[in-house]
């Protein structure tokens, strides 16, 4: 009888591997428990679009971004790699919530600037090199079906390095990056998702199965 009950409970709570309790994630991020529950709804949708295993695979991520699972894209790959904190090729729920929290309108700007710096540092050398910049411009042109001569691409990269690489050592380091973003604030616009402020309205399914206890509503900060 006891085992039967246990079985039943397990099945009822049956969360997929990689699941983390909303209450824990809420304590680490700007999200409330309800918002994490709402994000779980989105996560379930994204992680089951191709294989329903509770993990977001690369193809599922591409499908969500481009509505096309075969669309390879350097920038989507970079985001995926940064979201995949454990580097095991998939995005787990906890990774999803923690990474998205940087995109919250209330998240510290310094976090957004740092995240973007890592995103652009393709080879993770701790800086953005001219070579990487060129690779990204080329990828962007390709993404948009634009062809430009290599000379023009070099010119774009050169002009940008002139502006950003104030130490003239062929790469943009952390310090130069912060200065550069300060002068060109539009660059970090992509680091803020206003949708994250309306999670409970956009994904209201959590109201049905919220696990928040009536007695102990969690107190935030």
């Amino acid at each position: 009888m006891h085992t039967l009950m246990g079985c039943f409970c397990f099945k009822k709570l049956g969360h997929k591997p990689g699941y983390e309790a909303p209450i824990n994630l809420a304590s680490e991020t700007p999200f409330t428990v309800n918002e994490v529950e709402a994000l779980y709804d989105l996560f379930k949708k994204l992680s089951s679009s191709i294989i329903d295993d509770g993990l977001i695979h690369k193809e599922e991520f591409q499908l969500a971004l481009f509505k096309n699972s075969n669309k390879q894209n350097l920038f989507a790959d970079r985001i995926f790699d940064l979201f995949d904190i454990k580097h095991n090729g998939v995005i787990e729920f906890g990774e999803f919530v923690r990474s998205l929290s940087v995109f919250h309108p209330n998240a510290p700007e310094a976090d957004k600037i740092a995240f973007l710096f890592r995103l652009y540092g393709l080879r993770q050398t701790g800086c953005i090199e001219a070579e990487e910049l060129k690779e990204m411009v080329t990828a962007l042109l390709c993404e948009n079906n634009m062809s430009l001569s290599e000379d023009v691409v070099d010119l774009i990269v050169e002009k940008t390095m002139m502006e950003a690489d104030t130490k003239r050592d062929g790469k943009i380091d952390d310090e130069e990056w912060k200065e550069f973003v300060k002068k060109n604030p539009s660059i970090i616009k992509i680091m803020t998702l206003s949708d994250l402020k309306e999670l409970t309205l956009a994904f209201p399914s959590f109201v049905m199965n919220s696990g928040v206890s009536d007695l102990q509503q969690p107190v935030k900060n």
């Binding site: 481009f66 920038f75 411009v137 993404e143 206003s194 956009a202």
Partner: peptide, 26 residues
């Protein structure tokens, strides 16, 4: 105004635009 490579990438790349995770259609 000169649009530098990073402004160009940030604003034009669809791969960086995570708001599409929240939308059903492009």
């Amino acid at each position: 105004k000169f649009f530098n490579a990073l402004e160009f990438i940030s604003s034009m790349s669809s791969g960086f635009d995570l708001s599409s995770l929240f939308e059903k259609e492009r």
